[in-house]
């Protein structure tokens, strides 16, 4: 079943065409990779899907509903959560609070209830905290629950962003370069966690990543863009052999570069 479909999405910034007629279908339960060289339009695409940008033309259909042009909070409410390429945690809040803050949908009590600290407010808080701790455990961050988020090591901050996004109870999670700055051991752990999202939490994942070991290792399907245009789509095996991908993404003399994609991994 199609969960997210982009239909001929275009987005321009002045004279620059950031996205030109990009279309793809992400099936429910898939880990869907989106790759391309720097400046190919991957982050713009994320911003279009999450409502930060409105597409100039074309549609974004999520779960059977046209969501193009909806505001970010409305998109989040429909079940799309994301992480950021440049980490945007609430640095001075604790790890636990960072996750709890995304639990708006679990909120029952009114503002008045919060002011007077009613019982329903206390119940809300307990439910939020319990859920936050479950997610921290999944991402392996339980030990840091009380720490200030800004003090975590880089890789843990990236995992905390995922935990925070999960708090939104999304159907689809968008991960923007989650492995950036991770060493290979951390990246392996991340791969396990991304599969856990699909297999145990029944989530679909849209993944932008430069680390080819992660992309090739976890994705069910990969879509390749360059200069805002689709150049290929297929399974990891198909994509890594695709001539236009080799030319555009890995450079023409791809055999010599020794890039990760050429390694025997995955």
């Amino acid at each position: 079943m199609s969960l997210l479909a982009l239909e001929r999405v275009n987005k321009r910034f002045g004279g620059l065409r950031a996205l030109g007629d990009v279309s793809f279908v992400l099936e429910s339960g898939q880990i869907f990779g989106l790759i391309g060289p720097n400046g190919a339009g991957k982050t713009t695409l994320f911003n279009v899907v999450t409502g930060v940008y409105r597409p100039d033309t074309g549609r974004v259909v999520f779960d059977g509903e046209d969501i193009s042009g909806l505001r970010p909070a409305a998109v989040a409410a429909r079940g799309i959560a994301r992480t950021f390429q440049n980490i945007r945690l609430f640095r001075s809040l604790t790890v636990e609070e960072n996750v709890m803050v995304a639990g708006h949908h679990m909120q029952q009590a009114s503002l008045i209830g919060a002011v007077f600290r009613t019982q329903s407010h206390a119940k809300d808080e307990l439910a939020l905290r319990t859920r936050a701790h479950e997610l921290l455990q999944i991402m392996g961050l339980s030990a840091f629950a009380g720490d200030v988020a800004g003090s975590l090591p880089y890789g843990s901050q990236r995992r905390l962003e995922i935990a925070r996004a999960l708090m939104l109870k999304p159907k689809l999670i968008l991960l923007d370069e989650p492995a950036a700055g991770m060493n290979s051991q951390e990246a392996d752990e991340l791969k396990r966690q991304i599969r856990f999202l699909r297999d145990e939490l029944k989530l679909s994942v849209l993944l932008v990543e430069h680390n080819m070991s992660v992309v090739m290792g976890v994705c069910d399907r990969i879509h390749v863009v360059d200069h805002g245009e689709t150049i290929a789509e297929g399974t990891p095996e198909e994509v890594r052999r695709h001539p236009r991908v080799l030319a555009a993404y890995l450079g023409k003399e791809s055999g010599e570069s020794g890039r990760p994609a050429r390694s025997s991994e995955a």
Binding site: A73, A76, F84, R88, S92, H104, R164
Partner: peptide
């Protein structure tokens, strides 16, 4: 801290 991130986390 981050108005944009807060908005995407479902905060009004």
């Amino acid at each position: 801290i981050h108005p944009d991130a807060a908005r995407l986390m479902g905060i009004d």
